[in-house]
Design a protein around this nucleic acid. Structure first.
Lengths: 191, 191
DNA sequence: ATGATTGTGTAGCGGTTGCTACAAAAATTA
DNA sequence: TAATTTTTGTAGCAACCGCTACACAATCAT
């Protein structure tokens, strides 16, 4: 009834927090239960499966991220401002846990875990929407391709950062500055 | 002696092939052994650890990828040609297994597995070198930033593809064409 | 108060994990 | 040939995995 559902949501919230802090790998039922102050027996009372449980927790995290995004909305920016902004955003200590988890989810989705596939596309879609909404374009026809490019570039930064490629990220942002300098204002020969 | 070392390398080769085809997740000692026609007992005779074993196999895959890259070297291309070329390359059926494994390695590296961190930066470095070598620039000062940007963009495509975002990849490439149109040295290449 | 539903603890099942002890076979060396 | 070293098979350990059976307490509806 009501009580059960409330408890269930409380568990989901705690599970989500644990997964965000500790990742998907060390997340057996017993460990999860111990971390949030209950027992594996209880987890399987409130959830039919481990899969069901993970699904619930990860979906909660997806909407949690979605909330953060909608609350972080600033003024729409032109492409060459937006991308560095996003690159800094995903490296922000408050966002980085999501970023790390996002990588893990993606890898598992790519390996064929259907639960992860679902969550992954959910997250990707909302992130793309956010990027698109924060992008200022002169011609509406530019929105989709430029939002896509911004998304790809930032996702690339996520991956680079995961393997300690901060230097490469800086290079990339410098390259972006090179590329966009003059594109929107005046053409210029670069390389 | 010699025989032992030869057998070891043969095992490494088979292990690498298995990991490339099946990923890191379903790779217990028993399963690996069965897949390559030996026993877990034997694997632990030729390798001190599972970690040692994985390290050997993944390093072999890293150099394997490196070989593919050096043999795939074409004429250096300008940025706006190179990036779509790379995006197509990482989606090539012959490369995709490496791509998928690369994601998995990255995720684990990000989660703190030191073995994965080592292999990950090894792979990343060689891939960056390859990108840089295949990039044609007019001013040498542009090489590093543009290579970095190419790397980030392509890594982003890897991630997008993993979650079925082929549409987004196409958008991104279109966006790239928009950005570079008229900016770089080959104005009539794209349009 | 009683009967039914729901929440919780204990204990354990069958399976997998990385890894090891023991010993026999095979190859090498004397 | 005999002694020694290296390779391989069998068996199993202790820990963990997801999950379940069973019993009991708490709550709730009537």
């Amino acid at each position: 009834m009501k009580k059960t559902e409330k408890k269930r949501r409380e568990l989901i919230e705690k599970l989500a927090a644990y997964l965000l802090a500790n990742g998907l790998q060390q997340s057996s039922l017993r460990r999860l239960a111990a971390a949030i102050g209950t027992s594996d027996r209880m987890l399987l009372h409130y959830f039919t499966n481990k899969e069901d449980l993970m699904n619930a927790a990860l979906s909660a995290l997806a909407t949690q991220l979605e909330d953060i995004l909608t609350n972080t909305r600033a003024e729409p920016m032109p492409f060459e401002v937006l991308v560095p902004h996003l690159a800094a955003f995903v490296a922000d200590p408050r966002i980085q846990p999501f970023t790390r988890l996002w990588l893990e989810i993606t890898a598992r989705a790519s390996a064929g875990e259907t639960t992860m596939t679902t969550v992954a596309s959910e997250i990707m879609t909302s992130f793309y929407q956010w990027v698109s909404n924060n992008l200022r374009v002169e011609d509406p026809a530019f929105r989709e391709p430029l939002a896509g490019l911004a998304l790809a570039t930032v996702e690339g930064c996520v991956l680079l950062e995961a393997v300690g490629g901060e230097t490469k990220i800086k290079s990339a942002m410098a390259g972006l500055a090179l590329l966009t300098k003059g594109t929107l204002s005046e053409p210029e020969q670069l390389g």
